[in-house]
Amino acid sequence: MAIVFQRPHALRETQMHYCPGCTHGIVHRLIAEVIDELGVEGRTIGVSPVGCAYNNYLYFNCDMVQAAHGRAPAVATGIKRVHPDNVVFTYQGDGDLAAIGTAEIIHAANRGEKITTIFINNAIYGMTSGQMAPTTLVGQVTTTSPFGRKPELHGYPLNVCEMLSTLKGAVYVERVSMHDIKNIKNAKNAIKKAFKVQMAGLGFSIVEVLSSCPTNWGIDPVNALKWIEEKMIPQYPLGNFKGKDLEV
């Protein structure tokens, strides 16, 4: 009997802790499928963030390092400079990457560190129970913006891909979404290309993934996917910002 679908080897056989309807698990799977398809599990080192995915080192079969909040790009820099032939990726949320770790991500990208960042943007702090993130939409209610995000008080949503794509060291920058099958397939292609860009030694690569957080958004999983499509994408347009034509 032919096996047509199975757990990627790069994912460990263990139960994930994510909430129902959360898309972290899908993104993990996509990364693992890419690692399998590129045949690089044995030389991949991942860096886990602080946030909901803090212990995703338990889910990947490759070597993993857990980093302090926002510091994953600096930690990954240290790893990559010691093992330049390894494939090094960071997995970071929007609080981690776009708030406390803004300096680290900008400078890792600007140095053209040959690492890949998978950036989960769900417009909220998940693990600490739904606080406003730099990526929270205008008007979005969170536990620390109970009357909605107001630009005059809280500033505007931070568009990370647009910002990083102005840097020469960032050679591949793409935003994808988890809201339907077609987009999940696009996401996998982007992640694969980002890894290949790193393996070709071209520079820094990042894939921003628009993700759902039904628990902290306070809506059911199906409507959460709709919310990504209808509310998030207008603020965070999908597509490639840099490196579309790179041949790797």
Partner: peptide, 19 residues
């Protein structure tokens, strides 16, 4: 590496020591 900050420098140390 001349890091962007002391914070980043010590986290690079963390990464390199891990490696």
């Amino acid at each position: 590496i001349q890091a962007e900050s002391e914070v980043a420098a010590m986290n690079m140390v963390y990464g390199a020591a891990s490696a």
